[in-house]
Design a protein around this nucleic acid. Structure first.
Lengths: 191, 191, 191, 191
DNA sequence: CATGAATGAGAGTTCATTCAT
DNA sequence: AATGAATGAACTCTCATTCAT
């Protein structure tokens, strides 16, 4: 009974928040978000306990989507390098197609209100990637380094690559390929 | 306004701002900074036009210091790889020794108030590094890639490396060396 | 140096708060107070940490004034009953002349934000009254009852008396005298 | 709007409101009340026009209950003093057994939203007490004072007495008796 | 009737900035 | 120059009330 809580409105708020925060920074007023979502100011607080919870939710949401995107079309049977390349391509393509979400994830990553629990929970979303990299290391494709280090390098290099793909779309494919080579050769054990 | 008298106070403000912003984020009140600097609230506005100018100045300041630190003991006569290694070492060591300034630079980088002119001006500080990388590319040490891309990769990888050096100080040296290898081999043209 | 904090403004805020709270209740907005005081909204927070502190301060202030008023012209040499009568008169006269402060004190007394420490601190202001009543009890003028009970009765009866003095000013004196008699005879041991 | 169906729900709301308001003050949100009553937020407005009406109703309700309690077992044939003593005992016992309702009545008494008509209507509930006191005055048991004054004194003294009975339950009976004596002797004409 | 999502005015409080001292 | 009181716009969040379901 009574009006049910609308998934549409929740999504509208998350979408509006993404846009507003990406453009104006996390200090943008919540009213800018509800306004962009076409809702009343108070409605935000029906769906989220407060601004902080909204931002944390947004971070989880973005990272979850990213984790999903990275594994789209992923085949466990393919050889290691092919799998890695596939993930790399999915990753950077997602980044290029979702500039707002990407930019926002960077802002939230260095935001002081990000809850450690959320930080950790998002890590867990990347279990498949984790396992892929562990295999690459244990099968001597990669040098003997902690997998966290490898993941961090992958991420850092992919983010840099995306940036150039967006800046210079005509060479998008070149950056994508070259970026992967830099990653693969850099970590490779056959130096 | 003429150059203010006390360089000491200006420096105290910059130092206090670094600490406060690094810990509490850029939304920390200016009063927290003047308080940490042992000065009155209004004094900040004698030395800086406003909070935005302070942050922009801080960014320039950090980047300038970093640029200087990277070139300490740099010799133009050494071979390319040695020079690159030297710069790498200086870079990551600076990052490990200046965690606050490092963290703050990340925050300012994604801050919406960072002026493009400042962004560009800091680039200019790295002219020597720029020229080193251009040489490395033209002399075929590195693959044929835009030097901005190479710099960005260097930066991304070095920042990742610093992070692990700080997290796990007992393996600091290992990360430092491995990180450089990853960088060098990744970009290297002899794959 | 700099503008000194003005005792005048602090007093203006306390006076405005008294009037506003007495008329509109403790839920009146702080802006109504600063407006009545002819100051900016933010100024209230220069002088008081928040609304709660303002109200607690106000309570202390009122009770302190009352304690002082009760002892005006008090002589330790007079006989017990005369001293008590003197205090009674001062008490009810203060109440009649300060209806806003009286009304406000009643509101704050049942307010959930009143800090126990403040509650206790105000008690201490009535040390002289306390000692007078203790003497009256120990010298058998009053029945053998806890002095807190006697004070509470005195207060309750005086407050009731004030109410009628204000309602019906032409009989003000009658109520004042009769009220004291009711108090004295009620507690008296020679029943 | 026709009389709503469920008297149970109305009572649940009044009971919940008593508890919530007594503990958190009249500024407690209506949602806290409906929640405590196990009902939906909107339901409160089916039974009461608004928060103000609820509080006014509550006041009437409490006072009505008190008036009833005071007269329980009352006999018009008993002598004046016995009747008065009976009423006094009923009064203070009700107060001790209903601390929430007592506390709440104090809060509403100084509340700015209490409607004068409600204030007056509650007075009428005490007609029997009124008549008892008028008789006591006209038959010279009490001094020649307006009966409103006597009632106010009775109330003030009884409330004070209850407070001590609750604070120090082991001496509950003593306070009850002594309190009555203070009242009776204070007002008595044979001073 | 009962529900609870939706509303939006209004609350207390913060804070960058100004300016009297 | 240095100070810090003064300012008031702007912020996040609350909540009584309405109304679609």
């Amino acid at each position: 009974m009574a009006r049910p809580r609308s998934e549409d409105k929740r999504n509208a708020l998350l979408a509006a928040a993404t846009q507003v925060f990406a453009n104006k920074g996390l200090s943008a007023p919540t009213s800018a978000i509800t306004c962009a979502a076409g809702l009343a100011e108070g409605t935000l607080f029906v769906y989220f306990k407060g601004k902080d919870e909204l931002i944390n939710t947004l971070y989880e949401d973005i990272k979850q989507e990213l984790a999903g995107a990275m594994l789209a079309g992923y085949s466990k049977d393919a050889p290691i390098k092919a799998r890695m390349h596939h993930v790399w391509n999915n990753y950077v393509e997602w980044g290029v197609q979702n500039p707002d979400r990407l930019a926002l994830s960077h802002k939230i990553k260095v935001w002081e209100g990000l809850k450690p629990e959320v930080q950790e929970a998002t890590m867990a979303r990347f279990a498949e990637l984790h396992s892929l990299i562990c295999t690459a290391i244990s099968e001597k494709f990669f040098q003997d380094l902690p997998y966290e280090f490898v993941i961090a390098m992958l991420s850092a290099q992919a983010e840099t690559t995306m940036q150039f793909m967006r800046q210079d779309p005509s060479n998008s494919k070149v950056y994508k390929e070259k970026g992967f080579e830099v990653f693969w050769n850099g970590l490779s054990s056959k130096s």
